[in-house]
Design a protein around this nucleic acid. Structure first.
Lengths: 336, 336
DNA sequence: CTGTTAGCGCATTCAA
DNA sequence: TTGAATGCGCTAACAG
């Protein structure tokens, strides 16, 4: 074990000086003589001294840690976001810890308690599909911990948010499909109490009206998105009297499920059915056919969320109604 | 801001008792009278008291944090692993922090310094492709911080490791391709100084010899795996005098790149070329054609790594040569 | 230029 | 059953 864990007191004792002197020397305080600084740093180096961040945290009443709370770490959107956030945070001297709610509000609650106990410097979160209100997150605010929502937000908590323009995205999607000649456009989406899905549903319906379409196939899921959900949704839509000629999916996983089911049913894309989805996953370009998507700008979203959080941490202004919205970009490939 | 951040001293003052009493009451110490316990917990609850984990960390000389160090957070293998590890760790009362080396050894070094400063309870790591030795990781051991390697390991650091049986995987892959009638089997892999790729290269060559094959196409990459790397590798192989009739890829990203290139070149899979890869990504089943893969048991690997780390933390036995190897499973689909 | 003192929040040992 | 005193490692205010 080589009882490392040398402290400044150990160094002080060895050098016959006070530990405050060591502390100052190690931080390059100019009031300490150059020779003493050299002596201390050399010895510290040799002994493998490393400052105890826990002690600093206690003393400073804060931790150099930013926590990320997401529904599912291994979904591409979130894992990419985590990676981006890690880079930004590490460069700014923060450590990033991650938590997944697994789409369950009660797990979110536990996570929030942990974050409060740990006195994290700030939190960036995207809520679970089963989260109906912001009461749990409000606890963070009441405790003085800055919070920024991204993508999926709680509108009843007064904090900065970073979202994509979901209404416009769906509207753009419907317009694009209409322009390409599709007239029976279905929408596979999530529960309307989550802003992301609600806004897209509004955009979808607005688009239908605007284009003068009367067909409306909208399927809403309560919980997680799996490949099988996309498949089931398609089956449901095909069971209707009038079948859709296009589906607009709120997630790449759903559209991938639809594509898989089409293959099994020998439905040709885009000849028989167009598939358009809001997505980020690079595999959207690799499946057959390559998917036309509405791409969320993940890097920009990550940067905005980070900036807003750091601002809140630095200024100590937590409550805010700063809402940052990013546009979505249409990437034309072969599925429409 | 509602200056929360109530401490036991605040509670003690309000209740006219000593803060040690409050501390004991809050933890349900039976030596404190039931009435006092009730009084304290009620008031603490009402005031939104939450124990300061930083103070506990300092006092206990350890932090309830497990750190994960991976080359790239957003690669499916790693993001899935992070998710799995998060669940296990959170259930055991730990917080998980994540760091990505971005395949760069110098970033790994910085990360390790941070981990030491933070006095994390333990570290689970998979090394970057540019890491040539374990000197940086040895610092953790010297500092008394338990370390477990998974997947990509440093053999010169004496700690527990969890890997897949890479040699057997490649051997199985070559045998399978041979059995299916392929005779010119190429291998797209990574730098041999990383155990994962070295072992697979050994298994590949062993398989060729065993099957009496003389064709050998082996392409090694120095750095990151991107889709374009798979494409480039295929081009290289096709430029050879004798073209391969099968490629064995060390990563799904590479095989996806190969598949994409085949599509562009109108090479039919598996008629003209078989593609077999070591993979986990669920999209391997969704691309066209669905990929035959050798699947790593990520859940089992995660569980083993976690168990080994907890054991090291609990027993304080850090140095160990416990090496846990998991078998790989062949999943037959349509690409061979 | 360096030492002294105090305190961050908490749990624990020793007293009472 | 409760109180008092101590210290985890570190920094900062104050003193000299």
């Amino acid at each position: 074990m080589s009882s490392s864990r040398i402290t400044i007191k150990d160094i002080a004792r060895h050098l016959g000086v006070h530990h405050a002197t060591v502390s100052r020397a190690l931080r390059g305080d100019v009031r300490i003589s150059a020779s003493m600084r050299q002596l201390v740093t050399d010895y510290a180096q040799k002994q493998g001294y490393a400052v105890n961040q826990n002690a600093l945290n206690l003393r400073n009443m804060s931790r150099n840690e930013i926590a990320l709370v997401v529904p599912n770490i291994s979904h591409y959107t979130f894992s990419y976001f985590i990676g981006k956030m890690s880079d930004l945070a590490n460069n700014a001297g923060y450590v990033v810890s991650v938590f997944q709610s697994k789409e369950r509000a009660e797990i979110e609650k536990q996570i929030i308690d942990t974050l409060i106990k740990n006195r994290v410097a700030g939190v960036i979160a995207s809520i679970s599909k089963s989260t109906l209100d912001g009461i749990a997150f409000q606890k963070l605010i009441d405790f003085g911990i800055p919070l920024v929502f991204f993508d999926r937000v709680c509108s009843d908590v007064e904090v900065p948010t970073v979202t994509t323009d979901n209404f416009s995205a769906a509207l753009t999607g419907v317009r694009y499909l209409f322009q390409k000649g599709y007239r029976r456009i279905a929408h596979i989406t999530g529960p309307a109490h989550v802003n992301v899905f609600r806004d897209r549903q509004l955009g979808y319906r607005h688009g239908l009206r605007e284009c003068g379409l009367d067909y409306s196939g909208e399927i809403v899921f309560a919980q997680e998105f799996h490949l099988t959900d996309g498949q089931k949704a398609l089956d449901q839509l095909l069971a209707n009297a009038t079948k859709p000629d296009a589906v607009f999916c709120d997630s790449f996983v759903l559209s991938a499920g639809v594509v898989g089911r089409c293959k099994a049913l020998s439905i040709s894309i885009p000849a028989d059915l167009a598939v358009l989805s809001i997505a980020n996953d690079p595999f959207s370009a690799l499946i057959d056919p390559p998917q036309t998507i509405l791409e969320q700008p993940l890097d920009a979203i990550g940067q905005s969320a980070f900036d807003l959080l750091i601002k809140a941490i630095d200024t100590k202004v937590i409550r805010s109604n700063e809402h940052c919205t990013h546009p979505i970009r249409l990437i034309e490939r072969k599925s429409v």
